[in-house]
């Protein structure tokens, strides 16, 4: 049983501003947005309630449905790609190679760049008339094709490529820090047993990196929901709807299209999506802590 504590008056006072921010700024604005999603607001908030009309419109919109599908594809591949590449880079640097710090800087460098810059760089490189395709063709390989950003079926993977290039460095640093924390004795013991290096990484190192990689994955996943700038810089949602994402849909409707009701409905759906994805984890952690507390 947890011990019941008497709340300290001074502590409560000290926390008041934080409480104020949490309640008014976060929960308040969220409630305000949810309220608006049930109105027919266009440019300005209105108080004419229209029930679930905006949600019906939302899920009839091909653009919104495409954006949900895209963010799912992007999210899974981006997080998985970053974790895999980041781990491999960390393992490579962990082999006590020369110029390690130089490589570490190079691999981490993309993370220091904003998504807008990342998007622009990759847009130029993958643009068929300016980038890699044009330069390879000018070298003589006339049939070479690399047109991901302008190809409807490949554009979303171009985003993943750019995202992984940017985010892998972060995972590498976190994983490397984790690896450096692993005791050298384990290595010695594994060597004596004659276990191949790759097997040590997969079966001994990787399991111990669990928390570090989970933290990195969480950071990346939060970025996925907010994905906006890289899309705007790289493809602006095109060609067609092929790289449209929810955050961009919401921003477009909020400002460009003066459609507050639809935008807030989209935002509400997004919040609900995040809550349903995160709630089971939080619940599991809560239950585990309780079990520990009871023991």
């Amino acid at each position: 049983m947890p011990i019941k504590r008497k709340p300290h008056l001074s502590a409560t006072f000290a926390l008041l501003p934080t409480w104020f921010v949490a309640v008014v700024v976060f929960i308040g604005t969220m409630a305000w947005s949810i309220r608006l999603s049930f109105t027919n607001s266009t440019l300005f908030p209105s108080s004419t309630y229209v029930g679930f009309t905006q949600y019906v419109k939302l899920f009839y919109s091909a653009k919104w449905l495409a954006s949900l599908q895209n963010v799912l594809i992007f999210g899974v591949l981006y997080v998985a790609g970053c974790l895999l590449l980041g781990f491999l880079l960390a393992a490579a640097l962990d082999r006590k190679i020369r110029f390690e710090s130089a490589f570490r800087t190079i691999f981490l460098y993309p993370y220091a760049m904003s998504f807008v810059v990342t998007g622009l760089i990759w847009q130029w490189m993958l643009n068929p008339t300016l980038g890699i395709q044009a330069s390879v063709r000018s070298l003589g390989w006339e049939t070479f094709v690399l047109d991901w950003v302008v190809n409807r079926d490949m554009a979303i993977y171009a985003l993943v490529l750019a995202g992984v290039w940017q985010g892998a460095g972060l995972v590498m640093v976190i994983a490397l820090a984790g690896m450096r924390g692993i005791e050298a004795e384990q290595w010695k013991a594994a060597r004596i047993d004659g276990i191949p290096v790759w097997r040590i990484y997969v079966s001994i190192i990787l399991p111990q990196l669990g928390p570090a990689l989970a933290a990195a994955g969480m950071l990346l996943a939060m970025g996925v929901i907010k994905t906006y700038d890289i899309v705007v810089a790289m493809t602006n949602g095109g060609p067609g709807n092929s790289t449209e994402v929810p955050a961009k849909f919401i921003m477009d409707n909020l400002f460009g299209r003066q459609n507050l009701g639809l935008a807030t409905a989209g935002a509400t759906v997004l919040v609900l999506g995040v809550i349903t994805a995160v709630a089971p984890f939080r619940y599991a952690i809560y239950m585990r802590n309780r079990a520990k507390g009871a023991a």
Binding site: T42, L43, A62, K63, R152, G238, P239, G240, N241, S242, D252, N253, G256, R257, Q258, N259, L262
Partner: peptide, 20 residues
Amino acid sequence: LTPQQVGLLDDFVDEYWSGG
């Protein structure tokens, strides 16, 4: 047109053009 309709018109034309 209202800004909402302008947006939908853009979507319509873009979808026809790039949908092939």
